[in-house]
Design a protein around this nucleic acid. Structure first.
Lengths: 140, 140
DNA sequence: TATTGTTATACTCTATAACTATA
DNA sequence: TATAGTTATAGAGTATAACAATA
């Protein structure tokens, strides 16, 4: 389990645990909205929170997803009034995305939930090991 | 980016890169079969290779996926003659799964491809850091 | 009664290509 | 011509519950 291959397997299971942990947790939040935006919806809100307003293109880059997926998901979130779209004043092709107040509210709840899910998964690691892991992952 | 939250984001991107890297690579293998079994199909073959014969239940546990998904995927792979199912002699409820010769052949190709994709992604890390990462991920 | 595995359904994510509009 | 974003479509993964068969 020390080959690159093993790393892939472990990382896969790690992500799976985050995913199903969040799925379970979000249901307890009692937020219909949170449940209805899907994992990607939450990911988008969290990403926007790190730097808004953000062009669609940058969101695509950061999330490493296809732009056509983004278009659809953004439309969903916009229809649910969680994000707001404005035209870029200097480039007519560019849409800038921001969180609405409601979107920001949900984003905070989701981020707290996600943090606690990940904390739980990381609990077998010491503080030092956790920051080691963070650094290694960030490096790649 | 040192919070648990940041770790989640990095891990997510890591998995994404593996996923799209494999998608691109598998196309170059010229193996129609490999392309048609999907990421999970490959994952199942790889998991079986680590310990066959394996009951469905254990596959489900290792892959941390839902059993209903497994049922369908297993049926696919069986129809493509990549895996073989035998009844457990001591427990009539249990199906044991093994790789067929063709399945093993494809599994080896996929594992090589996956290994090289991951190696590429991990290349910014030194050998020591890579084994550190492997250990940390395995611990959780 | 509990466990192994299957079926059915509805939803979400992913890949691709063709397209519009602006630069 | 190149880039930002949209549309359409087909394929794959995910969650849930209800079910049959065996232990």
């Amino acid at each position: 389990m020390e080959s690159p291959f093993g790393i892939g397997q472990s990382a896969n299971r790690f992500m799976r645990r985050i995913q199903s942990g969040m799925h379970a947790k979000v249901r307890t939040l009692g937020e219909n909205v949170a449940k209805d935006i899907g994992p990607h919806g939450g990911f988008i809100l969290n990403t926007l929170a790190e730097g808004e307003p953000m062009p669609v293109q940058e969101l695509v880059r950061i999330m490493a997803r296809d732009k056509s997926q983004m278009t659809r998901k953004i439309k969903d979130l916009e229809a649910k009034s969680l994000i707001v779209r404005t035209q870029c004043p200097t480039d007519g092709r560019v849409s800038l995305l921001s969180l609405s107040d409601e979107g920001r509210d949900i984003q905070k709840k989701l981020q707290r939930a996600l943090t606690s899910v990940i904390e739980e998964i990381l609990s077998p690691l010491s503080e030092e090991e956790q920051s080691q892991l963070a650094q290694l992952l960030q490096k790649i």
